Amino acid sequence: MSRHHNSAGRGEDAQPDDGAPGSTDRGTISRRQMLNTVGVGLGVMAVGTSGASGQTSGQYPGMDAPDGYRVPAYSEGPRCLYLNDFGGEGDNPQGLIHFLQYVDYLRVEGICSTQPIPSTDEIHKQIDMYEEHYENYRTHSDFPTPDELRDITYSAASSTQSGSTPSGLSETAERIIERAHADEEDPLYVCVGGSMTEVAQALHEDPSIKDSIRVTSVGTWNTDQDPAARDYVYNEHPDLWWVESDSAYAGTWTAEDEAGVDSCGYMEEHVHGVGALGDYWATIEPCCMGQGCWQTGDFYTYAILLHGDPDDPTSPSWGGRWQPTDHGPNYWTDLSGTTIGKWADDYFADFARRLEWGVTVGIQDD
């Protein structure tokens, strides 16, 4: 029997979903164009509306989350592989900094590079920064050692898929197959913020993994860079469990809401300078906005696992809510970016708390 997770205890969706379903045009909208389309962070972005946390509407709470507030609230999280072109636009290294704060909870089966920047250099660079603070992290939770993370770092195919059918098998694709079969009753989430070539290769080599994997991915620019692989997966594997975003992921983009609350200022106050990874965040200039802001749209691909019910993409989660389609029984796509942005108070606060773990000593068990 597949393991099912209960909700992390924050109750029903805190507000109605806003906006019409997002565009599903494939690979035609750049991230800069998307920002202009939806407005920076979807305008008000509905921040601060998750009343269950007891936080004030429209205010980023900083380090003032209630005592005992820990997200996620599961004892251990889902299995996942995180795939991205980590050396690409600023949102990609940002996403990895954020992801590393949750490797105690997520059962990470791999951190994998993809095209168009397949190098693992960025992954190793950040693991080195993580190592600087590992002794503190481990006093707060069961964080893996830096070497354990290095041992599950994998590279991408040398190029994206060129024909209608995948060819070759990268080490990341091999890892997807291996870990899919490692525990066939416990789903493996393949969280893709970059190219789909590795997923296409794995499915082509071993279609039986569809019974064990669940894919979350960002389309738009990534689709434009790797259309053959994306179309192969879409057309040849319509029964694949897959949440694909072409617009709603932009609900994570933030600058300033109508109340004048500046999330760039929030990052400057609560993230910049907090350990080696916080120092690094401050140097990153994401596309579309200023230096050191929050631009990590790819966050949705694994945030769906951090808070909510990852078995049900139509239910509320930090990674948003998603609508079913007539493409297949297990394919969901964009509903509204506000279904992600509405949780900004919560996921900003939890990120800041966890980043702080790297520079503070927690309570150690005897």
Rank of each mutant, 00 (worst) to 15 (best):
A14Q: 05
Y280K: 07
L306I: 14
D262E: 10
S195F: 06
D345I: 02
R175Q: 14
R150C: 08
A180H: 01
I97A: 03
L203K: 03
A229N: 02
Y69C: 11
K342N: 09
T145L: 07
L81Q: 13
P66E: 09
T28Y: 09
G308M: 04
M267Q: 08
D298G: 12
V274A: 03
Y154F: 15
D298R: 12
F351N: 03
S170W: 07
G19F: 01
P16H: 12
E198F: 03
T145N: 09
F348S: 02
Q201M: 11
W332E: 00
T254E: 06
T153E: 10
V40I: 07
P72Y: 11
P227V: 09
L355G: 02
V44T: 09
D365L: 13
Q115T: 08
T333A: 07
P66F: 10
G308Y: 06
S113I: 07
A352F: 07
Q201I: 07
G95C: 14
D17H: 06
Y82T: 03
Q126E: 14
D91Q: 14
N6T: 11
S30C: 09
E356S: 12
V190A: 00
D345L: 03
Y74F: 10
D183F: 01
M196P: 01
C287F: 07
V44P: 06
D121T: 14
A52Q: 13
G290M: 04
S155I: 04
Y82L: 15
D312G: 03
E135S: 15
G11E: 11
D85R: 11
M34W: 08
D246I: 02
S2R: 15
H181Q: 10
D104P: 04
A180W: 00
D226E: 08
L149E: 02
V108F: 06
L335V: 12
P316R: 13
D17M: 05
R179L: 13
G297K: 02
D346E: 13
R214T: 07
K342V: 01
Y69I: 01
R230E: 08
K125D: 15
K125N: 13
R32T: 13
G11A: 08
S247I: 10
S23T: 15
E132W: 07
V233P: 00
I304E: 01
T160Q: 05
R214Y: 05
T24N: 12
R26L: 14
A8L: 10
P329S: 09
D67M: 04
N6R: 15
N136W: 09
P329L: 05
V47W: 07
P313M: 08
D67T: 10
V243P: 00
G163T: 15
I209C: 04
S30W: 05
D128P: 02
M1F: 08
P166Y: 08
S217I: 04
C80D: 02
Q33G: 06
V274R: 01
Y134C: 02
F299R: 14
L100F: 09
I304V: 10
L169W: 03
P187C: 00
E198I: 03
D17T: 11
